[in-house]
Simulated scan of single mutants.
Amino acid sequence: MSKKNILDTAVNFIESNLHNDIGLRDVANHAGYSYFHMTRVFTAVLGESVGSYINKRRLYEASRSLIYSKQKIIDIAIDSGFESSEAFSRAFKNIFHVSPTVYRKNGLNI
C-alpha cells in the first residue's frame, strides 16, 4: 500500500472517530500497520504526529461549536477530549492565539 493510501485510511479513521478516545495505536491497528511505521508515514507526509493531528482536528471542531452552539465551554472541552477547561484553554490558545471565550465573543471562524 502506498503512503497516500495508508494516510487516507488513517485520516478517514481519525475523522470517523474524533469524538472517541483514540490514539496512534488505534490508528495503526485500523490501517494494518505497526505503531512505528504509522508514525514514520504520518510524520513524513503531514509533518506532524498522529496525536498532534488528532488534537488539532478536535480543536477545530471545538472552534465550530464555540461559534455555532450555545454549549458551555467546559462541555465543549469535555466533548473534545480534554479533562478540564484549563487544559482546553491552553491548547486552544496555542492553536488560535486567543482564548475560547474571546474566540466565541468575537465570532471568529478561522
Rank of each mutant, 00 (worst) to 15 (best):
M1N: 09
M1G: 12
M1K: 13
S2V: 06
S2N: 13
K3R: 09
K3E: 11
K4N: 08
K4V: 11
N5S: 12
L7D: 01
V11Q: 05
F13G: 02
F13A: 05
I14V: 14
I14T: 05
S16V: 05
L18G: 00
L18A: 05
H19W: 00
H19I: 00
H19L: 10
D21E: 10
D21C: 04
I22Y: 04
G23F: 01
V27C: 03
V27D: 00
N29V: 00
H30N: 15
A31V: 08
A31I: 03
A31T: 06
Y33M: 03
S34P: 00
M38K: 03
M38W: 00
T39D: 07
T39A: 14
V41I: 15
T43D: 08
T43A: 08
A44H: 10
V45W: 01
L46E: 14
S49W: 14
G51W: 11
G51F: 08
S52G: 13
R58E: 11
R58Q: 12
R58K: 15
R64M: 07
S65N: 12
S65L: 15
L66W: 06
S69I: 07
K70A: 10
Q71W: 01
I74M: 02
D79E: 14
S80H: 05
G81P: 07
F82M: 03
F82H: 02
S84G: 10
S85E: 14
S85Q: 14
A87H: 11
F88L: 06
S89D: 08
R90I: 13
F92I: 07
I95A: 03
I95F: 09
F96H: 07
P100S: 06
T101A: 12
V102P: 04
Y103A: 03
K105S: 10
N109V: 09
